[in-house]
């Protein structure tokens, strides 16, 4: 009995420690915004410039009004993709460069907790950027959204985030081994993903084959689902939003499990090859 209680206490301690690690890693990302308020200016105003440019292309083409809404939603979601790419996946490269990665490796916590902390903190700060993009879109471009299915919309958004950040954790394991190529890989994953996921146009126009492959990127279905629910009259959806929610749920589970496996594997490999402390590659 006492052995069992010791075991459960041990388990509780492990969980608590990992939760603290997660909280500890999320903290600087959230609090950092208070310490450097100018980030708000750069994170909210700068993205608006390129998003506005895309809006004006559609205006120049006399596109139907919902296309302006598509750009605003897509533009808001770019913030999450950039966050996943540069502040989740590539983060372990930065951590290696500044000497933190070895500290994560020797800490008595799971790397997943550290990554989860990054995800929570990153998603919080990114949400501010995304929300401000949408608000500016509503105010400047007079975009009108329908809120007919708020529950389904929330579900799609939440599971898009879980799957997306799970994918980010999975990528992070690769970045643990990489040097300068991390930077370039992140760059090369920007525009192609914007294209395949249909950030600025409905993904169904890429054709069923390409759109199906693109559905492996959680943002593809997330964006498509949210657009269908926010602009129900447009009829530009790829597959029904409820199916998209189901697929996103499955993707969330798959990416999180794969992330756990990959992170353990890559960390062991990085230790074996002595790459955890290798800087300036």
């Amino acid at each position: 009995m006492s052995e069992m209680s010791a075991q459960s206490r041990g388990m509780r301690d492990v969980l608590l420690r990992n939760f603290r690690a997660m909280k500890g890693r999320a903290y600087p990302r959230i609090i950092g915004m208070n310490r450097e308020p100018s980030w708000l200016f750069f994170d909210t105003l700068m993205p608006i410039l390129s998003i506005a440019a895309f809006v004006y292309i559609y205006k120049a083409m006399n596109a139907p009004p919902q296309y302006i809404g598509y750009v605003i939603i897509g533009g808001a979601m770019t913030a999450y993709w950039m966050n996943v790419l540069w502040a989740m996946a590539a983060q372990l490269y930065w951590e290696k460069e500044i000497g933190n990665l070895q500290l994560y490796a020797i800490a008595p916590v799971s790397t997943m907790s550290v990554m989860a902390g990054m995800a929570v903190g990153g998603a919080f700060s990114t949400t501010i950027r995304a929300v401000s993009t949408i608000l500016v879109g509503i105010m400047i471009f007079n975009v009108k959204f329908s809120m007919a299915s708020p529950l389904l919309l929330t579900g799609i958004f939440v599971f898009t985030m879980i799957a997306l950040y799970g994918m980010g954790m999975m990528f992070a394991s690769l970045y643990m081994l990489w040097g300068r190529e991390a930077w370039h890989i992140s760059e090369v994953l920007t525009e192609p993903v914007y294209l395949l996921s249909g950030f600025y146009f409905p993904v169904k126009y890429l054709g069923t084959g390409v759109a199906t492959i693109a559905a492996l990127i959680p943002l593809t279905l997330g964006l498509d689902g949210m657009r269908q629910l926010l602009f129900p009259y447009a009829g530009d959806g790829f597959i029904p939003a409820t199916h998209e929610l189901l697929i996103l749920t499955v993707l969330s589970a798959i990416f999180l499990v794969l992330a756990h496996y990959f992170l353990n594997y890559m960390e062991t490999l990085a230790k074996k090859e002595g790459r955890l402390t290798l800087r300036w590659q």
């Binding site: 294209l195 146009f201 126009y205």
Partner: peptide, 22 residues
Amino acid sequence: IYTIVKPISATFILVMMYVVVS
């Protein structure tokens, strides 16, 4: 591949935006 994929993808976003409307 890296040198080709990035600019072509960026361009294709605009091409798609154009052809979807046109």
